[in-house]
Structure formats: structure tokens, C-alpha cells
């Protein structure tokens, strides 16, 4: 497992074919996700697989399509970078020497702060998935920040690449979409993916998953449809302008819950005021903000994908 990771990393350094490097990155990310499963971090594994091996890799491939597959063979003097890396690596190893042993239940991280999440959260928040409790309630403000981060990324990409509407769309029939079987399979598949995304959103309280993962999967469904049937179809259903509105709506829903708490005389994002029973209020609050996160993430990821895939290679611009 770990050996595979190391091999992948070394191969990624050595290859000059960027297409191969991107694929290696996808594998690397996927292996990391498997490692996370092994370390009990199911939510993180899920997200890493969807984001690292999925979204990031797709974006890298879209970039390569425009910028060329091979890096120039000119090698720079690797001495200084090697020195910097060695120093940094030594500092890391130095730091690890006094670290608590791996997996030791007596380590400070397991003795302070975390125990409350583990023992109290089922009663205080009433959600079996502790990761969801911490993410959405105890540290709910970080998650709002995280949603803003992804919103910022979408904004930055649109500021850089522009939001194209109407003209220049890929034709709705590519060669790949002409296979009848493929069309049927994809339609069924996409329906399943979207359903699954909803399941992930609503099931986040009980198992792995939540708003973010759901948004990513939902966007993936659209991306697959888009790849097979061309852009025009998807864009008729969801024009970019509407994506922007959706992205904004998701954040406003999230922040709106927080502002409601403030109006009810409690701190920002205190969900206990949402129902008579505080625990029930937590439950409602978490569901609402997860929907908000999901909507924004879906809209932003799809908008970023539109922006990347819509660009033409310089030769095609004419």
C-alpha cells in the first residue's frame, strides 16, 4: 500500500509526459483515499477520492488539452531545490522524533477536546456521525469558510477565464454520443448518480458523506452527461448565469441559518434555537447547512468545469 504510494510519487517526478503524470496523480490520490479508509477516516477517504482522483484530475486533463502534453526536456540545476527539500525534510523528521507514538490512545490529541466530540456529541447533537457533528456544528464556522473558499475559487476561475454563454458551444453530437447503447447506459447511469448524490446528502448524518461530497457527485453526473451529449443540452437546463445564482443561494442559506440564530438572541450558527428541543434544532440546522453546502459546491464545480472545458485550443479560435 505505502510502497505503491512511494512508487507513484517517484514516477510522477520522473515522467515528462504530463498526461502520464496527471494519471499518476489520480492514482496517488486514489491510493491515499484507500489509506484513509484504513485509518478510519471514511469521510475523508470519500472526499479525497471524489475530489483528488475525480475533479482535480479532470481539471488537469482539461488544462493539458490546451497547453500541450509534454514538458520541455530542459532540466534545471536540481541542487538548490534538493537542498531546500532536504532541509525541510530533516526538520519534519526532527519534529517527528518527539511525536507521540502512532495510534497511541494516550496521545494528547485523544485526551483533550476530542473526547467530548466522541462521548457527548450523540446526546448534544443527536447525529451518529461524529465527523458531521464537528464539521457542521462545533466547527460549523470553518465549514462556512470552506464553502466560501470554493466559492472564491469559482469566482477566481470565472474572473480569469470568463463566463461564456451562448456561442461557441461544443456540438451536441460528438462521435462518442452516437453509440445508441452508450447513450442509454449513460442516461441510466446519470440518473443513478444524481439519486446517489441525494442519498449522500441526506444520509450524511448516519454514514460517510454530507453536503460537500453530495455536491461533487451531483456535479459529476452533469459532467458525464455533458461529455457524452455535448454542452448545449446541459446548458439549456442549467445556463451559467443560473449556476452563479445557485452558488450564491447555497451560501445565503447557510449564512441565513446563522443570522436566524442571531435574531433569536444566540451566537451566529447556534442551531439550538431552530426548534423547541435544542437537539432537534441541531438536527434541522445541520440538514439545512448541508443542503446549502451541497448546492454551492455543485454549482461552483460545474461552473469551473464549464469554464475549463469551454475553452478552445489556440489553433481552433481562428
Amino acid at each position: 500500500m505505502m510502497a505503491f504510494l512511494v512508487i507513484t510519487a517517484i514516477a510522477a517526478i520522473r515522467r515528462t509526459d504530463l498526461f502520464a503524470v496527471t494519471m499518476l496523480f489520480g492514482i496517488y490520490s486514489f491510493l491515499t483515499a484507500v489509506l484513509f479508509m484504513d485509518l478510519d477516516a471514511v469521510d475523508v477517504a470519500f472526499t479525497e477520492a471524489a475530489v483528488g482522483a475525480g475533479i482535480s484530475t479532470v481539471l488537469m486533463l482539461s488544462t493539458l488539452r490546451l497547453t500541450g502534453r509534454f514538458e520541455s526536456s530542459r532540466r534545471r540545476n536540481p541542487l538548490l531545490p534538493l537542498l531546500v527539500v532536504t532541509v525541510t525534510g530533516s526538520a519534519l523528521v526532527y519534529g517527528m522524533l518527539d511525536a507521540p507514538p502512532f495510534g497511541d490512545p494516550q496521545a494528547p490529541v485523544h485526551q483533550h477536546v476530542a473526547p467530548r466530540y466522541i462521548t457527548e456529541s450523540p446526546d448534544e447533537i443527536g447525529v451518529p456521525n461524529m465527523v458531521t457533528s464537528v464539521l457542521a456544528s462545533y466547527r460549523g464556522f470553518d465549514t462556512l469558510g470552506e464553502t466560501i473558499v470554493i466559492f472564491t475559487a469559482g469566482l477566481a476561475v470565472l474572473l480569469l477565464l470568463g463566463m461564456r454563454e451562448g456561442q461557441n458551444l461544443r456540438p451536441s453530437r460528438l462521435a462518442i454520443g452516437d453509440f445508441l447503447v452508450l447513450r442509454v447506459v449513460v442516461k441510466v447511469l446519470v440518473a443513478f448518480i444524481l439519486l446517489y448524490a441525494l442519498y449522500v446528502l441526506l444520509h450524511g448524518d448516519y454514514g460517510a458523506g454530507g453536503g460537500f461530497q453530495s455536491g461533487v457527485i451531483f456535479a459529476t453526473g452533469f459532467v458525464i452527461y455533458d461529455l457524452v451529449f455535448g454542452e448545449a443540452d446541459v446548458r439549456r437546463v442549467l445556463p451559467p448565469r443560473w449556476l452563479a445564482r445557485l452558488a450564491v443561494a447555497g451560501i445565503l442559506l447557510y449564512a441565513g441559518v446563522g443570522i436566524f440564530s442571531m435574531l433569536a438572541g444566540r451566537p451566529f450558527l447556534d442551531y439550538s434555537v431552530l426548534a423547541h428541543d435544542p437537539v432537534h434544532g441541531q438536527h434541522i440546522g445541520i440538514l439545512l447547512i448541508e443542503i446549502g453546502v451541497g448546492v454551492t459546491v455543485f454549482a461552483v464545480i460545474l461552473a469551473i468545469f464549464y469554464a475549463f472545458s469551454g475553452l478552445r485550443r489556440p489553433s481552433q479560435v481562428a
Partner: peptide, 13 residues
């Protein structure tokens, strides 16, 4: 000081 989410530190932000 302001406790976000109504959770006291160090559990909340």
C-alpha cells in the same frame, strides 16, 4: 470574545 455556534472554546471556534 464571541463563541461561534454557541459552543464554548476549545470545542467550538
Amino acid at each position: 470574545r464571541y463563541q461561534l455556534g454557541g459552543w464554548e472554546p476549545p470545542w467550538g471556534i
